[in-house]
Design a binder for these strands. Structure first.
Lengths: 338, 338
DNA sequence: CTGAAAGCGCTAACAC
DNA sequence: GTGTTAGCGCTTTCAG
């Protein structure tokens, strides 16, 4: 399957030891800065090592010492979405503090690819797993935490698996957003949602409904698109909302992809409806789009720290963290408030 | 340094072999789908394996077989920038076709972090390296390709190292962009550049100058900001350009970060100058910003394929690829052409 | 078709 | 302080 990869003959610790005229173990001790090595010996070993261009083989070391590599495997859907890549970045920074490396894999929201990636990580004996799980991987093909590797699920529920999870307060965030629109006088509120199968979106749409019910506003189902799936789908959805006999005066986009698609459609319209997005949007201010802000950075950091605790042996019950969101209002040109 | 990580006692191949009543080697053959194994034996081994929940230890396998892991190490500056993460995504997809995994590390344009990451990759015996190198890592602390691991430099020159490189046609792209502005009648053209130390930006600014010279337009140096460094810096730069007695009628932003900062500043202005960005911008159309388009996807793919060729043993001379850019015109509200 | 022995590069455990 | 022995989990030889 894999072609022959000629190993570029690297110097081994034995060679370093011989060059320095010491035993293997002494060389090992010196290079790992262990105690009980004479300074002169240590010096000699280090010189021999750098003269030979020695670089220790962590594969071998890990195999011998703990049978686990100092690496965390992470699955995200799509690196091009700054929401996901922001989570990965923050997680990597936390792990880097501990000298840990990150395997990053992209699932494209496909359960099979996710399972395949996780399998590859486990075969490489990662110390832990950070997973933004695909909608259709319940129950997970890799029966994740049962494999004994600490796992934290991010942005998506862990289901009935005994693993930690970190999510946003999707219901609360969406409610707060819709409350804001209602306070601005909007009554015909549309929704553009991503994949219906995504738990996050279900929660966000539930939040919308709850806000409407509590305000005594009847939801007009014809204004709810709950399966727009991608940017192009969101653009189409917005167009069809706009062409309705009675179009919405405000539209809620359930994530940043939906917001982008919606904005594409709105660019052509002279008096567009107000747009409210879930997730920050880089140019939200310049575009006059209010958003339910969340922090992918916090999610990545928090998840990574929780994972490290597990890796370090914490064995408490599963934890479910909900991160708060905040409403960030930017004046929309089409806002009815002026 | 690293805390004790208790290995979650996984079944070993020996245990599988014993359970199936075969020798170690036979079990190995069966699970690796090698030839010369009786179907019945193979079947028995596979059943034993899945009964025990066996997962092969690729660390051990790689140590024995080629002393190189089936993994590529990649360094990018910042995952939150879709330009970089797009490159990483495309590279990962190409590698995934071959069952290879990706170590992804973030340097934040810091040479030391880059060196540290590369060191970690090499210690783990990666099969190859994809590096978007930081401006200040010439000469590289890790004397990259001399270590014998195939390396491809992306978006940044490999310097005098004997490694392949994939870059964009920065000079040509910038020239084409400025030519467009000139054709639209602009004569006072400003520039907002990222870190002056970045080779890409030097090339892009060189392209600007060349276009101006060829058109016989004298460059007004007071309109060139060549060290804006980040989004906030670009916003400040644009503000100061706008407050000039004779502000530019068009501004060229040398990458997507600069474009975003510039747009922030422009949002407040009633009749903003035309903006031209290098790098695609997600809402370029909706914002009416023309861009010099490039394809991070192509860069990642191309780089990964070139790396795979090297990993497979190709030993030709170093290759320097320049990827084409294309001008994508979107009507700017402030364009003088209407 | 199957098995026994050796060893990848390193560290743990114990001697000296 | 230093060296020796064993062995992490697997694959490679080489015998049957």
């Amino acid at each position: 399957m894999s072609p022959p990869r000629p190993s570029p003959d690297r110097p081994t610790l034995r060679q370093v030891a011989e060059a320095a005229g010491v035993s293997l173990k002494t060389a090992s001790r010196a290079l790992n800065a262990e105690a009980h090595v004479a300074p002169r010996t240590s010096q000699r070993v280090k010189e021999a090592a750098s003269a030979l261009g020695y670089r220790r083989n962590v594969l071998a070391r890990d195999l011998r010492s703990h049978c686990t590599s100092n690496v965390v495997g992470m699955v995200i859907a799509d690196a091009a979405n700054p929401f996901y890549s922001g989570i990965a970045l923050a997680a990597a920074e936390v792990l880097a503090e501990r000298g840990m490396l990150l395997f990053l894999g992209f699932s494209d929201e496909d359960a099979e690819r996710e399972a395949h990636l996780v399998e590859g990580f486990l075969e490489r004996r990662v110390a832990g797993l950070l997973v933004i799980s695909s909608p259709r991987s319940h129950p997970r093909p890799t029966d994740a935490p049962e494999h004994g590797t600490p796992t934290v699920f991010l942005d998506r529920p862990a289901g009935d698996l005994a693993a930690d999870e970190v999510m946003f307060d999707n219901v609360g965030g969406a409610r707060a957003g819709i409350d804001h629109l209602l306070a601005q006088g909007h009554r015909r509120i549309g929704v553009i949602g991503d994949l219906g199968a995504l738990p996050t979106h279900r929660e966000r749409i539930a939040g919308v409904r709850r806000a409407l019910v509590e305000a005594g506003v009847e939801a007009d189902e014809s204004l709810f698109v709950t399966d727009a799936a991608d940017v192009a789908g969101a653009e189409t959805a917005m167009r069809s909302l706009l062409s309705l006999p009675a179009p919405p005066t405000a539209v809620f986009a359930t994530n940043n992809r939906m917001s982008v698609g919606a904005l594409r459609a709105l660019a052509e319209v002279p008096t567009p409806p107000a747009l409210l997005g879930f997730d920050d949007l880089e140019l939200a201010d310049a575009l006059g789009v209010s958003v339910v802000s969340n922090s992918p950075r916090d999610m990545g950091e928090r998840g990574a720290r929780m994972l490290l605790e597990r890796i370090d042996g914490y064995a408490g019950p599963r934890r479910r963290v909900r991160l708060r969101t905040a409403l960030t209002v930017h004046r929309s040109p089409a806002s009815p408030s002026h």
